[in-house]
Structures are given as C-alpha cells and as structure tokens.
Design a protein around this nucleic acid. Sequence first.
DNA 1: GTCTATACCTCGATAGAC
DNA 2: GTCTATCGAGGTATAGAC
Lengths: 215, 215
Amino acid sequence: MAADRTRTAIITAAERLYAERGFADVTMRDIVAAADVNLAAVNYHFGSKDELIAELFVTRSIATNRERLRELKAAEEAGNGRATAQEIFAALVGPTLRGCLGEAKQRSDAARFMIRASIESVPPIRKIKNREVDHLKRFAAALRRTLPDHDPADIFWALHFALAMAHQTIRDTERLTRMSDGLCDLDNVQAIIDRVVSVALMALTGKPARAKARA
Amino acid sequence: MAADRTRTAIITAAERLYAERGFADVTMRDIVAAADVNLAAVNYHFGSKDELIAELFVTRSIATNRERLRELKAAEEAGNGRATAQEIFAALVGPTLRGCLGEAKQRSDAARFMIRASIESVPPIRKIKNREVDHLKRFAAALRRTLPDHDPADIFWALHFALAMAHQTIRDTERLTRMSDGLCDLDNVQAIIDRVVSVALMALTGKPARAKARA
DNA sequence: GTCTATACCTCGATAGAC
DNA sequence: GTCTATCGAGGTATAGAC
C-alpha cells in the first residue's frame, strides 16, 4: 500500500508534467521532485522512463477504446445488429475528439496528456499505436456488416481517412486556426465530429451524407 | 572549401543515418564517425544537433514546396488564371505523396528522411512546421479564386483534411497495410493521390468528384 | 518487497590550443 | 577551421537500509 502510494504519486505527477510541458522538457528528476519520491523509484516501479510513458498512454488509450466500443455496441443494438455507417464512424472518432478538443480551460491532465502524445509521438507511444490494429478491425468488420456489397479496400481507406482527419485536427489545431485566421471554429466539437464523419462517409460511398439516416 | 567539404560530409552522413535508423537512435558521435569528421565540427558548422536537423528538414521542405507551387502555377496558367479545385488539391498533396510513397527499394535518403520527419516529429522539426502556414494560405487563396461563392471556412477545412489524409498515409503506411491485410494498395501512388484529392473535393463541395474536370 | 543514496555511462555542448 | 579535453545533464544500475 505504501508501494501503491509511491506508484500513484509518480503516475499523477508524470501525467501532469507531461501534459503541461510536453515530453521533451520533462526529465525523470523533474517527475520525482514533483511526486516527492526518490529517483530510483521510477525504475523500480516501471522499469524505465519509456515504460512509464507507455503505461500512462495505455491506461488512457484503454479508456478511449472502451468508450468507442460502447458507442459502437449501443448503435448496433439500436439497429438490431447493424449500426449505420454514420454511427460507426462517429463511434470511432467521437470519443477521441470529445476528449481532446473543446474548451481548453477545463481540460484535464489526462486529456492534455493525450494531446501531447498525439503531437509529439515519442518512441514508446509509437510502438503501442502500432498494435492498435486489432481494435480498428472491429470497426472495419462493423462496416462490412452494414455495407456487405462495398469493396473492402474502400472501407479500410475510409477508416484510415477518418482517423487521419480526427488526429490531424487534434494535432494541428493551432495551424488550422492560424491558416484560417480563426475562421474555423474549433470549440464546437460536435460540429467537427459531424464534419469528419460526413467526409468519411463520402469517402466510403462517393456520395454526400444524408442528414440523418435514422431518427 | 575545406569547410564546405566538412559541412557537406556532415549533412550527407546525417541524412543517411537519420533515414536509416530514425532520430531517436542516431547520436552526434554516430554522425561524425560516419562523416569522418571531428565531434566539435557539428556544433561549429550548425550550432547544435537540433539546428542540424532543422537545416536538413528545411532544405527538403523547400524543394517540396517549390514543386507544389510549380504545379499550382502550371495549372493556373493552363486554366487562364484559374486552376480547378482538383488541380489545386493535387498540387498540394501530389509532390509529398510521390516523394514518400511507392517502391521502397529505390527510395532516396532524402525521401526516407522526410518519412522519418513525418513519423517521429522531433522538436526542431515541429517548430518549422508551425511556420508552414503562409505556404498553405496560397492554396487557400487559389481555391477562393476558383470557388468564390464557397464558405471560406469550408475551404480551410478541406485543405486541412487533404493534408491530414496525405500525411497519415505516409506516417501510417504500415498500420493501413496491416489493418487491411494488404488489401490497400500502397504502391500505386497515383491512385492514392486521386483518392485523397477526390475525398478532399467531396469535403469541399459535398458532392462526389467528377472524373475529369478538364481534359 | 519497498525505498534510498549514489555511482555510472552516454550524450550534447564548449573552452581553448593549434 | 579543426581538434582535444572536459563539463553538465539525463537515464540507468546497484548496493544496501528499512
């Protein structure tokens, strides 16, 4: 239990510092100072700096992925086993976008940490993302159930593009704001989700999205 | 001239090593050993490791941006001052995708370096990318000339999405391949450009792209 | 099993000789 | 311009206290 306290203190301090200052600027000595523990405690509990970062990222990723699957299941149950393509894309990009965009003031350390992870793409996190494939295959499978006549390759491309748009929007919020001189509204998260989903749908079907597929 | 030789040797060796092994695994001592120069030479000629990386990236970026603008101008001249939206998007994403995708064996160090830069997004390179805004505004301006009745915000969103799709395709080639079990063809670069452009167009106009706007 | 003090090694940077 | 020597910072490893 004393062990738990130290471990938790490290996790909390590390997530906060990385969220605030990014991965490049935070050293292990910074973290242990903030957590008020000994330098060697990080290696004892996590093995290495990279494994600490990996654990932080995995914890938050699991939460996001769970929320994605929850939305997917809910849509499938509401549709008697078939979600609409629109709902599937929304389940994929909605949780991430809702977590990372919106009013900056009230953002949690967890949300800001995930934004950093997206922007800075440090080696331990890259390795984990490469294993995200199985999770994505579930959304591909859902789309194939809904659109059995579609070319499977087009389905994968559409998923790939949906993720691309969502992640780049999180990553390059600032560039989009500056390029558009503030014209692109990045506070209305639902509007952004709708936009990404609608483009992903068009990528898939070659047609503009109908406003509402099901009430 | 002796100075030039040293400087060039460092640049060549650094680009090759970064291309081969990524930024995280290559130290300055690796670079100077490969270039057969003294350790202090890097700091003398470039100031710091980060400035060396920045110079490598800027050099290659300028080449890409020049090619983008060349394509844009060519299309505008062919269209008497107005390029089609299709041509504008193609000018934006074509040079990058042609440089970074396609047959892996014949990829130059320069191309592989740019792929690494895209994937690993190391601090000095992030800083430079943030100044890319002026370049993008030229493409926004071209689109506004071609589509004067469109909502400007939609134009910026479409440009943002086009870049997102292109960069993610370069960055996550492997994930897309694995997710689709090899079904998505990443060797046919022109087909990928067409796909990205067509989705960007739909994002902009809300309609599927016509096959050829102008012969 | 948990934690601490401390030493080690690699890396980027720099001062000063040539 | 180039080189040697060395410094400080950062991540890691270990020996031993509790």
